[in-house]
């Protein structure tokens, strides 16, 4: 059974940080799907709205950082609480970077939408769904302190990496067949790279969750 903190306010502060991180995670997940939707459906207005939305993510990063610093300064957290706070400080950075990657996708989308479609997008939406699922599962693992789910997220990264390589190869054939597609192909490739980075950030979060749960650092061990 989980005991409560003797100082109730301390428990409330940790709970608030946890909830805000989840809220931030939900927002970046929405950004990933909106960014992809704006590309696939050639919806320029949605791309612009998503770029603007990134400010909310940045603001949340600042707020959560501030709350973590307050807890560090005032509560001197130890053990599980210490691991949670240091983890929160890092997760928030990864989430903010995911937001940046979505904004980058939308910037490419604005350019791509001005030109004829290069090809129907098949693998990119699959990649986006996989990356968004990884983000959601990494945060679920964080909330439930579920190391097994976090491990699954780490291994799912391979699938996203494979899709990225596949997209690169395919785009190469387009560029070789018709060099006039090069500019667009490079942009589409950049979008794939953004999604690949999103999945990497989700993997970072998952690795940190394993650390929080087991107290064992598995980073850079593969």
């Amino acid at each position: 059974m989980e005991h409560e903190h003797t100082i109730k306010q301390y428990g409330i502060e940790l709970k608030e940080i946890r909830e805000q991180l989840l809220e931030m995670g939900g927002k970046v997940e929405l950004m990933i799907s909106d960014a992809m939707k704006s590309l696939v459906e050639r919806d320029t207005a949605l791309a612009e709205a998503t770029i603007a939305y990134d400010h909310q993510i940045n603001r949340m990063e600042v707020e959560i950082d501030d709350k973590c610093l307050q807890v560090l300064a005032r509560r001197q957290p130890a053990a599980r609480d210490l691991r949670f706070i240091t983890l929160a400080l890092k997760i928030v950075t990864d989430l903010e970077r995911i937001g940046d990657q979505c904004r980058n996708i939308c910037k490419h989308t604005l350019h791509l939408n001005k030109e004829p479609a290069l090809k129907p997008y098949i693998d990119l939406p699959r990649m986006a769904v996989a990356a968004a699922t990884m983000v959601r599962e990494a945060l679920d693992a964080f909330v439930r302190a579920d190391a097994d789910l976090a491990l699954k997220v780490c291994s799912d990264d391979t699938f996203v990496d494979q899709l990225n390589s596949q997209i690169q190869r395919e785009l190469l054939t387009y560029m070789m067949a018709d060099p006039s597609t090069t500019t667009r192909a490079i942009r589409v490739n950049a979008v794939a790279k953004c999604l690949e980075r999103v999945a990497d950030h989700a993997t970072n979060v998952a690795e940190m969750v394993i650390f929080m749960v087991k107290g064992k650092d598995i980073r850079h061990t593969a």
């Binding site: 005991h3 903190h5 003797t6 100082i7 509560r75 957290p77 130890a78 053990a79 691991r83 107290g215």
Partner: peptide
Amino acid sequence: TNPEKKQTEDYITGR
């Protein structure tokens, strides 16, 4: 940072 026993953890985290 990572005590083994739950009782220890509860004590040092103020629970």
